[in-house]
Design a protein around this nucleic acid. Structure first.
Length: 270
DNA sequence: GCCCAGGGCTATG
DNA sequence: CATAGCCATGGG
């Protein structure tokens, strides 16, 4: 197993904070599926051990190119976010595959994390190639265009999202993503929302977790609750106002703030 | 703005 | 153990 020195990085919170679904912790190692890759890895202090992929892949996937000191300093505006950063310092956004991210977050609509994980695993089992790493057997995530059988999609227990996935599989080609990557935030978001099953929240997740838009601020029920309670004195307020506030308050790394607040509020009941 | 979608989760019987 | 009610997001 190879290793690299990593500063300002915490593998556990990065993997487990809820941004990503295809991972398993087995005997102290994380097995992480992303598209056609499996990363087996573990962290000891400032050393990250890994195998299955190149060092370049590891650095890209875990966003080790982000200057986390600068980012956290820029979003550390108050006691609440300060505590979240202190508690989970080293949590980084992941650089996910946009196609896999899109399908995963279509599954996330009105669901919970265990269910989303089950859906994405089943889609991989039904449409992706089998692959093994040590004793860990899994399936690659199917390529765009391959999730093409509505009955089989339904067998993955995705419920009313089956049609959305089937449709996304037709529309979201590799070229679709090449074009998306060239667009600024607002335009990319508009294109994503044209897809059935993709509203503002899911579009923001895809933009933040796979398309480099670190100012995206996805608002789900947990974030809404914590934002209203701590920044709006408990008053009811629209998601648009919360987004505007987050953009001006946290700045261009608002998405990082969102992830710290999300994980912190879910685990600490704030 | 209200209801519905399908299935996993949680509390209760 | 079985069952009912809850959850969370987008579409109509």
């Amino acid at each position: 197993m190879r290793s690299i020195k990593v500063g300002d990085f915490d593998l556990k919170s990065t993997v487990e904070c809820g941004q990503f679904f295809r991972w398993n912790l087995i005997e102290g190692h994380y097995y992480i599926n992303s598209r056609d890759s499996i990363i087996k890895c573990r962290q000891e202090k400032d050393e990250l051990f890994f195998e299955g992929v190149s060092e370049v892949f590891v650095r890209r996937f875990f966003r080790l190119d982000d200057d986390l000191k600068t980012i956290t300093r820029s979003i550390n505006k108050d006691k609440l976010i300060g505590e979240a950063i202190r508690e989970y310092y080293g949590l980084r956004l992941l650089r996910q595959d946009p196609w896999e991210c899109l399908i995963s977050y279509i599954c996330s609509a009105a669901a919970n994390i265990p269910k989303i994980k089950m859906n994405v695993d089943k889609l991989s089992e039904h449409f992706g190639r089998p692959v093994s790493c040590d004793c860990y057997d899994s399936h690659h995530f199917p390529h765009p265009g391959r999730i093409d059988d509505l009955k089989k999609i339904s067998a993955c227990k995705v419920g009313f999202r089956a049609g959305y996935i089937h449709n996304a599989n037709k529309v979201a080609t590799e070229n679709f993503f090449i074009k998306l990557k060239s667009l600024p935030y607002a335009e990319a978001k508009k294109e994503l929302i044209k897809l059935e099953g993709v509203g503002e929240k899911i579009a923001d997740c895809i933009l933040l977790f796979s398309l480099e838009h670190m100012d995206a601020f996805p608002i789900d029920t947990w974030i809404r609750k914590v934002m209203i309670k701590h920044y709006f004195k408990g008053r009811k307020i629209s998601d648009a106002k919360i987004r505007d506030f987050a953009a001006s308050y946290f700045g261009k790394y608002a998405g990082y703030a969102q992830q710290y607040l999300y994980y912190y509020s879910r685990l600490n009941n704030v």
